[in-house]
Amino acid sequence: MSPPLIAVLNGPNLNMLGLREPAIYGRATLDDVEQVCAQAAERLDVAIDFRQTNGEGELISWVQECRARARGILINPGGYSHTSIALMDALSAVALPVVEVHISNIHRREEFRRHSYVSHAAVGVICGLGVRGYALGLTALADIIMDEDER
């Protein structure tokens, strides 16, 4: 039996990690984040599909694809957290456990960043713990999937 697949989806500007506002987001690159996720996935005995896009429509299409192939979604929606009802709707429609992750603490930032539409579709939100939040999110999803399998 193959390990369960968790989609790790990253939204706009995350390809600029390490360059963009390092005082807020740190110096880790998206490649570093992928490595953190790969190490966590190996430890948790899950498979990951790690992707990043700057396009809202592409991100929504990837979410929709997950319904047929993934057991959970770990998503850093970037700026779409605060603007995309369409992304929230897609995440709700796939009926999979979703964990939202943010590298910075969105609640300590500008007022407009404190609201996330995506949170309405998520079972949990991890923010402010840097790139290690991805590993925590994968751990949470692996636990949720294991609980589902035991039912």
Rank of each mutant, 00 (worst) to 15 (best):
W62Y: 07
R67F: 11
R109T: 10
L30V: 01
V8F: 02
M1H: 07
R67H: 14
L136H: 08
I73D: 06
V36H: 05
A121C: 03
L129R: 14
P3Y: 11
E56L: 00
Y25I: 00
V99K: 03
V125T: 14
H82S: 10
D149P: 10
S84H: 08
E58A: 03
L19F: 03
V99N: 04
E56I: 09
E65R: 14
E148T: 06
E111Y: 15
M146W: 15
S81K: 13
V94S: 04
P12M: 07
P77K: 01
S84I: 05
R51A: 12
I85C: 13
A93R: 12
L96K: 10
V123A: 10
G133H: 05
A40L: 06
Y134V: 03
R108K: 11
S92K: 04
A93Y: 14
L138D: 03
I75Y: 02
A7R: 09
I24F: 03
V98D: 07
L14Y: 01
G130C: 01
R43Q: 15
I145Y: 13
D89L: 01
V8Q: 04
V33T: 09
L96D: 05
R69Y: 15
E42V: 12
A41Y: 04
L74P: 06
A140M: 12
G124I: 02
G78A: 01
D45R: 15
C66H: 10
S2R: 11
I75C: 01
V131Y: 08
D45E: 14
H107T: 06
F50D: 02
G137P: 14
I60K: 09
V99P: 02
G18A: 02
P97G: 07
R109D: 10
P22W: 01
G55I: 06
P3D: 13
V8E: 05
V101A: 00
V98S: 04
T83A: 00
R151S: 10
L59V: 01
L44H: 00
G72Q: 13
N76V: 04
A93G: 06
P12G: 03
A135L: 02
A90V: 01
E65W: 08
A68Q: 09
G55H: 15
E100M: 07
M146L: 15
S81I: 06
V8K: 00
P3R: 06
A142M: 05
A142E: 08
A68E: 13
N76M: 10
D147Q: 14
P22N: 01
E34G: 06
R51I: 12
I60G: 03
Q52V: 13
I6Q: 09
